[in-house]
Nucleic acid binder design. Structure first.
Length: 586
RNA sequence: GGGGUCGUAGCUCAGUCGGUUAGAGCGCCGGCCUGUCACGCCGGAGGCCGCGGGUUCGAGCCCCGUCGACCCCGCCA
C-alpha cells in the first residue's frame, strides 16, 4: 500500500476533455473496472464526478495494474492522451481521452463487495441497506442525493431572496399528546420526565411569528413513531414555512413559484397557478382527499337512476340515507369475464359488501345485477358515460364507505389497466377541510389537521353548536395522488384557541398544562399568520422517479423501523437505564 | 394489530408431479490475450435451499410455527 502524502487530485474523474491533452494530471478514486488484455491493461477510475479510462502497457506499471481489484482506492499520475477516433467511447463524458499512467499508487485495499458497484443491476433492498456505504457509491443513489442537494439549495435561495429567515427550532421539545405518537427522550436531570422529538416545529414556528420574525422557513427533520410505508419514515424532512399576516391566497402565491422552481431544478416545467378543489368535492369525485388527477374514472352518483329499484340491498342502502355510486372502467366492455370477476373479488377483499357491474356486449346488456332492471341499468350506462365501451361498476352503502372503497378501487384499476400517464405532473390544492373529525374509538372530536388550525370565518360562529360542519382554513398540496404538503391559517385569537381545545375535550386546566406557554404567548399581540410544510423526501422521490422515499434518503430505516447498517435500535447497558431512572417492565 | 408477495451460491434468479448427483448468468480464483470499454477465450472453486418442527420410504418443493425484506389496511394532529 502506498501513501497519499501531499498528493492532491488535479482533476476529477469526470473532468478530462480533449483540451487537457498533454497535461500531467493526478486522479484519485476507486477502481471501477479492470480490462486486462495481457500486454495492455485498461482501468476505469471512478469518483462521484464520473469515470476516466487510464491505460498502461509498460512494465513495471503493467504488473502493478494487474494486481488491482475493483473498489480499491488508487492514485493515478499520468499524462492525458487523445483516443484514436475508433476507440472513442461516447458513453463516457471523458470518453474522448484517456490517461497514460506514469505512476500508480494503491491508497487502500478493498474487500470484494457483495454486489457490483459498476453494474447497476437490481439488488435486494435489505442487502443495499446493510451495505449502504457501497450502495451510496452506485450511480442511482449518487444521482438521487445530488438532486436532493440541488433542490434544497434552490429552496434556500428562493426563500432567502424573499426575505425569509431560516431559523432552527429545538429537537428536544415538549410532548403534546394530540396527533402522532411521539418519540420520547428520557431526562437524566429530571427523573421520570421526558423530552419529545418534534412531530413538526408547529408551535415553535408560530411563536416565531409572535416573536416578530415575520417570514420563517426551515428544512427540518420531523419524527413520528408510527408505522412505515414506502412514503413514510419515522424521521423525515419537511420544508417548514410560516408567514405573518398571511391569507391562504398569499401562502399559495408564495409556494406555487417555489414548487415551479423546485421542479425546474428537477428538470420539469410546470404551470401555475395550481387547480383548487374542496375536500368535499375531492372525496365525492375521487374517493380521496389526495386525488390522482393523471386519469379520469371519476366516481358518479347513480342513486337517482335507481331511486325505486326493486333490488333489495341497494334499496335498503338508499332508504337508510346511504348512496349508490360507481365508476366506469374505460374499455371495460371488452375485458374478459374472468377479469371482471377479479375486479369484483378485489372490491370484496377491500371490504365492499358487493360490487355490481354492467356493460354492453354484442349480445346486449350484461350485468351481475339483473334484479336492478334492464331499463335502469341501460340508463345508468348512458348517464355514467360508459356507453358501449366501458364497464360500469357500482357499490352501495354509507357515503363514507362507498367513497373510500371506490377511491381505492379507482387507483387499483388505473394501475391494472395502465391508465396512468407517468410523464404528467398534476398539482392540486385541496381546500376547505373539515376542522374536526369524530374519533369513534375515543368518542370525541379530534383536529383533522392540527389543533391550531383556524376555522373558516363564516363557520366560526357555529363552532360550538355544529362542530362537525365547520370547515377549516386548511389546505393540502397534492401531486399525482401523493400529499406533498399541508398547512393552514392558524388561530391567533387566544379565546378561539381555548374554545377549540374545549371542543377537543381538553379542559382549560389540561390546556394550561400542555400548551399554557403557547396560549400565554397568544395573549401578547399575535399577528394573524399561517403557513405550510412540504414533504421534501416525497418531492425528491417524485422528481427522481423513485417509488420509495428510502431511495432519496442516505440512511433510511426498513418497514420495521430498523437501520440494517448500524442495527439501531439496540439495547443499552444497565448503567444507562439507571442514569435515566428507567426500569424494564419485564 | 391484520392481509399479501418473497427468502435457493457473494449478487440476480431457475428448479417440472415430492424422487436419488440442486442449476444458470454475473461476480470470484487460476491461465491466455497489445486497443478494450458489460473486453474475449479456457479452466476452477463456491450451497445450513432463512431458521425450527412435522408429514413421507424420500422434502428446496407439502403442512405448522418462527425470523427477515417489501407492498397494502389500520395508524400517520
Amino acid at each position: 500500500m502506498d501513501l497519499l502524502g501531499d498528493l492532491y487530485r488535479t482533476h476529477t474523474c469526470g473532468q478530462l476533455r480533449p483540451d487537457h491533452v498533454g497535461q500531467e494530471v493526478v486522479l484519485l478514486g476507486w477502481v471501477h473496472r479492470v480490462r486486462d488484455m495481457g500486454a495492455v491493461i485498461f482501468l476505469d477510475i471512478r469518483d462521484r464526478y464520473g469515470v476516466t479510462q487510464v491505460v498502461t502497457e509498460a512494465e513495471p506499471l503493467l504488473g502493478q495494474a494487474k494486481k488491482l481489484k475493483t473498489e480499491m482506492v488508487v492514485a493515478v499520475l499520468g499524462q492525458v492522451a487523445p483516443r484514436s477516433p475508433e476507440t472513442v467511447n461516447d458513453k463516457l463524458d471523458t470518453g474522448q481521452v484517456e490517461v497514460r499512467i506514469g505512476e500508480l499508487r494503491v491508497l487502500n485495499d478493498a474487500r470484494r463487495p457483495p454486489f457490483g458497484i459498476a453494474d447497476e443491476s437490481f439488488v435486494a433492498e435489505d442487502t443495499r441497506l446493510r451495505y449502504r456505504y457501497l450502495d451510496l457509491r452506485r450511480q442511482r443513489m449518487q444521482k438521487n442525493l445530488m438532486l436532493r442537494h440541488r433542490l434544497t439549495m434552490g429552496i434556500r435561495r428562493y426563500f432567502d431572496e424573499l426575505g425569509f429567515l431560516e431559523i432552527e427550532t429545538p429537537i428536544l421539545t415538549k410532548s403534546t399528546p394530540e396527533g402522532a405518537r411521539d418519540y420520547l427522550v428520557p431526562s437524566r436531570v429530571h427523573p421520570g420526565e421526558f423530552f419529545a422529538l418534534p412531530q413538526s416545529p408547529q408551535i415553535f414556528k408560530q411563536i416565531l411569528m409572535i416573536g416578530g420574525l415575520d417570514r420563517y422557513f426551515q428544512i427540518v427533520k420531523c419524527f413520528r413513531d408510527e408505522d412505515l410505508r414506502a412514503d413514510r419514515q419515522p424521521e423525515f424532512t419537511q420544508v417548514d414555512v410560516e408567514i405573518s399576516f398571511a391569507s391562504q391566497a398569499l401562502v399559495f402565491s408564495l409556494i406555487e413559484p417555489l414548487i415551479a422552481e423546485i421542479f425546474t431544478v428537477g428538470g420539469i416545467e410546470i404551470t401555475t397557478p395550481f387547480r383548487t378543489m374542496t375536500y368535499a368535492e375531492a372525496v365525492a369525485r375521487y374517493g380521496s382527499d389526495k386525488p390522482d388527477l393523471r386519469f379520469g374514472m371519476e366516481i358518479q352518483d347513480l342513486g337517482a337512476v335507481f331511486a325505486d329499484t326493486p333490488f333489495g340491498p341497494v334499496r335498503e342502502a338508499l332508504a337508510s340515507g346511504g348512496v349508490l355510486r360507481g365508476l366506469v372502467v374505460p374499455g371495460g366492455a371488452k375485458i374478459s369475464r374472468a377479469e371482471v370477476d377479479k375486479i369484483v373479488a378485489e372490491a370484496i377483499e377491500m371490504g365492499a359488501g358487493g360490487l355490481l357491474w354492467a356493460r354492453q356486449t354484442d349480445k346486449g346488456l350484461a350485468t351481475s345485477a339483473k334484479a336492478m332492471g334492464e331499463a335502469a341499468l341501460t340508463r345508468a350506462l348512458e348517464v355514467s358515460g360508459a356507453g358501449t365501451d366501458g364497464l360500469l361498476v357500482m357499490t352501495a352503502g354509507t357515503e363514507a364507505q362507498v367513497s373510500k372503497l371506490l377511491g381505492a378501487l379507482r387507483l387499483s384499476l388505473a394501475k391494472r389497466f395502465n391508465l396512468v400517464d407517468p410523464t404528467r405532473f398534476e398539482f392540486l390544492w385541496v381546500v376547505d377541510f373539515p376542522l374536526l373529525d369524530w374519533a369513534e374509538d375515543e368518542q370525541r372530536w379530534v383536529a383533522m389537521h392540527h389543533p391550531f388550525t383556524a376555522p373558516s370565518d363564516a363557520d366560526l360562529p357555529r363552532m360550538t353548536e355544529a362542530p362537525g360542519e365547520v370547515t377549516a382554513k386548511a389546505y393540502d398540496l397534492v401531486l399525482n395522488g401523493s400529499e406533498i404538503g399541508g398547512g393552514s391559517i392558524r388561530i391567533h385569537d387566544p379565546e378561539v384557541q381555548r374554545q377549540l381545545f374545549r371542543l377537543l375535550g381538553i379542559s382549560d386546566e389540561d390546556a394550561k398544562l400542555r400548551f399554557g406557554f403557547f396560549i400565554d404567548a397568544l395573549e401578547y399581540g399575535t399577528p394573524p399568520h399561517g403557513g405550510i410544510a412540504l414533504g421534501l423526501d416525497r418531492i425528491v422521490a417524485l422528481l427522481a422517479g423513485e417509488p420509495s422515499i428510502r431511495d432519496v434518503i442516505a440512511f433510511p430505516k426498513t418497514a420495521a423501523a430498523v437501520d440494517l447498517m448500524s442495527d439501531a435500535p439496540s439495547t443499552v447497558d444497565a448503567r444507562q437505564w439507571k442514569e435515566l431512572h428507567l426500569k424494564p417492565l419485564a
